[in-house]
């Protein structure tokens, strides 16, 4: 464990808590893409199957359980409890166009052709594009509540911090995982436009308005 990965995981946890609080407090999931939340639930389910087989640390096990539980809780809140506030008309990204390529790529480019490894690789590829429906929804509505932009900033920062973690592990631990690094780069690049808007607007108290 290193400071980059620890802050990355905490930023990830913060994002999930911000989102749950936003939905629970405002009793509304307006402006949130349910499709992205479904993709995240698929990502954690397919990545953390090793919960049953390998024990790495109490921290690792605890965080995996939290990520899986909160991702399903968020999907439940959006599609069941606060279903009436779900923005179905704008949340129209075809997630099969993300899932199918991730499955194919995981079958073709992986480290080891075993069930657990292919599912792990699929989850890495899918996570790198899982935010697209959310960014698509923000671009369609042309704006985002500030709480939603804080959620996106924390979520985007988590993988950016992981990039620093991988640099650290390459030099300090002679360790690297090319698939995770390439997917992590793609994932972070997708946030660049948002990061720019967040830093130049939201941090100055303005609303996040996308140039229509």
């Amino acid at each position: 464990m290193n400071i980059f990965r620890l802050f990355g995981d905490l930023s990830h946890l913060l994002a999930i808590i911000i989102l749950l609080l936003k939905i629970w407090k405002t009793r509304s999931c307006a402006g949130i893409s349910g499709k992205s939340q479904i993709l995240f639930a698929i990502v954690y389910t397919s990545r953390y199957l090793d919960l049953m087989t390998t024990y790495i640390s109490a921290y690792n096990t605890f965080m995996k359980i939290v990520f899986v539980a909160t991702s399903y809780a968020t999907v439940f809140l959006m599609y069941m409890k606060f279903k009436a506030t779900y923005d179905r008309n704008h949340d129209t990204f075809r997630i099969e166009f993300l899932i199918v390529p991730a499955v194919i790529l995981a079958l073709v480019i992986n480290q080891e052709f075993t069930v657990l490894e292919v599912l792990w690789t699929f989850s890495i590829y899918l996570e790198s594009v899982a935010i697209l429906p959310q960014l698509f929804l923000v671009s369609k509505t042309g704006e985002a509540e500030s709480i939603t932009s804080h959620y996106l900033f924390a979520l985007g920062s988590y993988r950016a911090l992981y990039l620093l973690n991988w640099v650290y592990r390459y030099y300090a631990e002679d360790h690297y995982d090319l698939i995770a690094i390439v997917a992590g780069l793609v994932q972070t690049v997708l946030y660049c436009d948002f990061f720019y808007l967040y830093i130049t607007k939201v941090l100055k108290g303005k609303k996040l308005q996308l140039p229509a």
């Binding site: 090793d50 965080m63 792990w120 992981y162 002679d174 690297y176 995982d177 090319l178």
Partner: peptide, 10 residues
């Protein structure tokens, strides 16, 4: 430098 095969990250 070896490619890792144990996924110890979240």
């Amino acid at each position: 430098i070896e490619q890792s095969n144990m996924h110890d990250e979240l």
